[in-house]
């Protein structure tokens, strides 16, 4: 069964003229890693908000069509219970820290406290997550005094510790430096190995190319393209919809245009190297 099923979904935020989502139909399967790319204002974040239940529970407005999470319509879900099912990490590393805990260890434990998990179990889970995400050296630090990159890692740990089956990650690195970005992608790699259902919105296309199973390109509230990662990212048409193309793919097309085509269009550097060597 599909984890999330969207059927002819349209949505308009309150007090706005344009539809934020237009007639979207898509099934997100359990255990797959999805990447969402495309122009800003094209509906990427709104789609996340919809799956997360923030639309229509938090942001009111007009929702049409069926949105099924685990077979139950989103309107029938209790938003509070949904948060125990779907984890959510977003851009701003500063607003995701609660501001009420004095150590990282307690910050990471907050969600589990709210869920009423027994204390011994909290300690065990938080310890494991901190080791897994390599923030064990930070556990005694004050989360309100960390750098953006460190805070974003703590935000990930806080959500991952809740062990939700599904994660929505909305532009986690757009406000981080290269080191913070690398650390966050290290976390995303770890998550991929855990076989959770993951939806990642991200502009850093080389990272998308590396980790995602399927890609959706959003434009003007609709899905312009969708399919397996390689097929989508090697298609130059996606740039007309505001999506970036991996440098390796741009290079692949430039080779073809120059009359020196590679066997196929690469989307990562490690894919490009043998293709070039084969040609020579």
């Amino acid at each position: 069964m599909a984890k999330i099923e969207l059927n002819d979904v349209s949505y308009k935020y309150p007090y706005t003229k344009n539809q934020a989502l237009r007639k979207i139909s898509y099934n997100f399967e359990s255990g797959k890693f999805y990447g969402i790319i495309g122009e800003n204002g094209g509906g990427k974040t709104t789609l996340c908000n919809l799956i997360r239940g923030l639309v229509p529970h938090f942001y009111k407005g007009k929702l049409k069509g069926d949105v099924l999470v685990d077979g139950t319509d989103i309107r029938d879900w209790n938003l509070d219970e949904l948060s125990a099912q779907i984890g959510y990490v977003f851009q701003n590393p500063f607003t995701q820290i609660s501001g009420i805990k004095e150590t990282v260890f307690e910050e990471v434990a907050l969600g589990l406290e709210n869920l009423g998990v027994p204390k011994e179990e909290i300690i065990e889970k938080v310890t494991n997550v901190c080791k897994l995400l390599k923030i064990d050296d930070l556990i005694e630090n004050n989360p309100n005094e960390l750098s953006g990159g460190q805070r974003q890692r703590v935000a990930f740990a806080s959500i991952i510790s809740m062990e939700t089956e599904m994660l929505i990650i909305d532009e986690p690195t757009s406000q981080l430096d290269p080191e913070g970005t690398r650390d966050v992608f290290g976390i995303i790699k770890t998550l991929k190995e855990s076989n959770k259902t993951i939806i990642l919105v991200e502009h850093k296309i080389d990272m998308i190319a590396e980790y995602c199973d399927e890609i959706l390109v959003m434009s003007k509230g609709s899905i312009a393209f969708s399919g397996p990662t390689h097929e989508i990212l090697s298609n130059p048409e996606i740039m007309e919809y505001g999506a970036m193309m991996p440098q390796s793919a741009i290079f692949g097309h430039a080779m073809a245009d120059a009359g020196k085509p590679l066997a196929r269009i690469p989307i990562t550097l490690s894919e490009a190297v043998p293709l070039v060597k084969d040609r020579r």
Partner: peptide
Amino acid sequence: TAGQDKFGL
């Protein structure tokens, strides 16, 4: 460039 799409760039 933080958060910019292809059009923004």
